[in-house]
Amino acid sequence: MNQLILRYVLASTLLTASCQIDAQEKLVALSMTGQPQSYSLHAGAYKVMGYGNAHFGMSVDEVKVLITQDYSHTLGSLKDEIDPAQKTRVLTMVVPELVPGPGPATISYVFGATSKRLIAVNVYWLVTGMATDAQQAQLTEAARVLAADLVGYRWPIFTVARGHVLAPGVLLVFAGKDAVGGGIEVRLNGVAYTLEARQASVASVATPETLVVPRGPAQLRFSMVANVDKPDIETLPN
């Protein structure tokens, strides 16, 4: 696959999944924090298939074999639990080091309530206690690396979101949904970020404002889901 290094102006290319531009649009706020300044351009479309060697549709036993092969030093931390609300089965383990994040990471493999097959993988890099500026910067850089590996693929129109502040201290760095409904997300929690106001149809950007979150834990979450719209979970009756 041919790869080109695409250098782009972030101010004019940040995408929004929900922005249907109209004549009466208002200012929207987007964040440049965690956005790559260059990335490899791929010819094909991205397909969300799982994480590492674990692919959606695998059984619990198949994933356990992979964990034994790929993360044998983590078997002492492996937990096998049932989510009481969603009735999914979850295998969780702690990896001492996992690139691109700093320090240890927690990996959770989620199996469908009905299918009993792998439907999601969540990877967390967490700084407990009072995260320092340096630790926040490390998480932000790791988010940038993850995003850079995703933005250069083709995605269906209106299925990508970047730079959205979902709540105070919660930054959606990248989210995308592939052509068959698989979803992937890079999210930062508890990390300082810049915020820029703009009109969605205009490349001009107001003076960036840096928002500093209160001192506390910080987290980078990397999530993959087999089917965003039809997750295999048990929902409570209305």
Score class of each variant (00 low, 15 high):
81 E>I: 12
129 G>W: 05
79 K>V: 14
71 Y>P: 05
98 L>M: 12
146 L>G: 00
89 R>Y: 06
92 T>L: 07
83 D>M: 06
122 N>M: 07
64 K>F: 05
100 P>K: 09
140 T>Q: 13
137 A>Y: 03
127 V>N: 04
70 D>I: 03
99 V>R: 10
125 W>F: 12
138 Q>C: 07
70 D>L: 04
80 D>F: 08
143 A>N: 03
136 Q>V: 02
108 S>M: 12
139 L>C: 10
129 G>N: 07
100 P>Q: 11
96 P>Y: 04
104 P>S: 15
107 I>T: 04
109 Y>E: 04
120 A>G: 15
126 L>F: 10
141 E>G: 00
137 A>E: 13
79 K>A: 07
60 V>K: 14
110 V>K: 12
146 L>I: 05
133 D>V: 12
137 A>S: 14
141 E>F: 10
103 G>C: 11
133 D>S: 14
96 P>T: 11
80 D>Y: 07
137 A>V: 06
106 T>R: 15
77 S>H: 07
94 V>T: 15
114 T>A: 14
144 R>W: 00
98 L>R: 02
113 A>W: 02
108 S>D: 07
124 Y>E: 08
120 A>K: 13
128 T>K: 13
120 A>S: 13
134 A>R: 06
77 S>M: 09
119 I>A: 01
116 K>L: 13
81 E>G: 00
60 V>S: 05
138 Q>T: 09
65 V>H: 08
123 V>Y: 07
116 K>A: 14
67 I>A: 09
139 L>Y: 04
134 A>S: 12
87 K>D: 08
95 V>F: 02
85 A>T: 09
121 V>C: 11
109 Y>H: 15
84 P>F: 06
116 K>F: 09
